[in-house]
């Protein structure tokens, strides 16, 4: 309805102040998370953990954009998938070492994000979502047709190689710790961005763009920067995933992947620092356990979507955050 903007509920739960105690809590959670990451491969199958970490980073990157920038990109699979292709191709065909291949993939995602972001921020709200989705579909069709992506087969048997020429990533546990470090670095970067002056302006633009503009902030520059940051980190996640699974395929650039990352963020808690991680754990585990059900997984994902949107918009971590009366 045209005049309903006054009653529109912000997509994100209001964050209560008291920065000091929140900061202490966050530090504890991050340290706890790091400890869990160190111990986890002795308890759980490392490849499964790496899958969760890649998707968690992907979801955190997405959440930076939607939860803090208020921009719903429905095409994040494009950056995730394209980075995955570039990483797989440079590592396999050109024989680049894994860390360089990952960086190359990430860089391409950043550039793609810069171009697509500059286009998409020309429209707001619902149009922004449609444009990002359409641009991502263009990348998908490009990936279907381009020679280097291997079409339906994808790029298979990507070598994991040696990290910095020393550490053999063929070993699952060694690779796991590498992925865990990448993930933590990504998370800390996002955390830093959210709590920086840049992050504050971003939230201001999210909550009231005309007002932020009238205060002299160039909203479009902020939006573009957060978009590129988000696509870069999504690319980092995708490139890392290509090394982990030694595979880059069309699944990673498909629009269903874009939907999946939205779902992870929604389930975990939109606009919470740690929500997307929990969301990734829930969704990846669910897919793992339900894999035998085939297409029913899609139906269940759809149902989770509907239930989350209708009844559980704050997400799991959002709920905790309300109980603790602290932003998480």
């Amino acid at each position: 309805m045209a005049n309903a903007s006054a009653v529109v509920e912000s997509p994100v739960a209001p964050v209560l102040p008291d920065a000091n105690s929140a900061g202490r809590l966050h530090r504890r959670v991050i340290i706890g998370l790091a400890l869990v990451l160190i111990v986890a491969p002795f308890v759980v199958y490392p490849v499964f953990l790496m899958k969760i970490l890649c998707f968690a980073l992907f979801a955190c990157a997405f959440n930076l954009l939607l939860g803090y920038g208020g921009l719903l990109s429905f095409g994040h699979a494009a950056y995730f998938g394209m980075a995955s292709y570039i990483c797989a191709y440079t590592a396999k065909v050109w024989g680049w070492p894994p860390e360089v291949a990952i960086l190359a993939g990430t860089l391409v995602a950043a550039l793609l994000g810069l171009v697509f972001g500059a286009l998409a921020i020309r429209r707001q709200g619902i149009y922004f979502a449609m444009i990002t989705l359409a641009l991502a579909q263009m990348v998908f069709f490009f990936s279907v047709q381009a020679k280097f992506t291997g079409g339906e087969d994808g790029i298979q048997a990507v070598p994991r190689g040696r990290l910095l020429g020393v550490l053999n990533l063929g070993d699952d546990r060694a690779l796991y710790y590498f992925v865990a470090v990448v993930f933590m670095a990504g998370l800390l970067l996002i955390y830093r961005v959210i709590h920086s002056p840049f992050g504050q302006v971003l939230k201001a633009i999210r909550d009231n763009e005309p007002r932020a503009i009238s205060l002299g902030f160039r909203a479009n520059q902020y939006k573009l920067l957060v978009f590129v940051l988000s696509t870069t980190l999504a690319g980092l996640a995708g490139a890392t995933k290509a090394i982990v699974f030694q595979l880059a395929s069309l699944t990673d650039v498909n629009w269903t992947m874009s939907g999946e990352v939205v779902l992870m963020t929604l389930v975990g808690g939109l606009g919470t620092v740690f929500g997307p991680i929990l969301g990734a754990i829930v969704i990846v585990s669910m897919e793992n356990y339900l894999a035998s059900l085939g297409a029913w997984v899609t139906v269940i994902q759809g149902i989770v979507f509907v239930v989350c949107v209708l009844l559980f918009r704050e997400g799991i971590v959002g709920l905790f955050s309300r109980w603790l009366k602290q932003p998480l």
Binding site: I126, V299, G302, F305, C308, R313
Partner: peptide, 14 residues
């Protein structure tokens, strides 16, 4: 309005 998009996306999946 974004929630409308997300809801109808979920319905489409179902």
């Amino acid at each position: 309005h974004l929630y409308g998009l997300l809801l109808t996306f979920g319905l489409a999946l179902i």
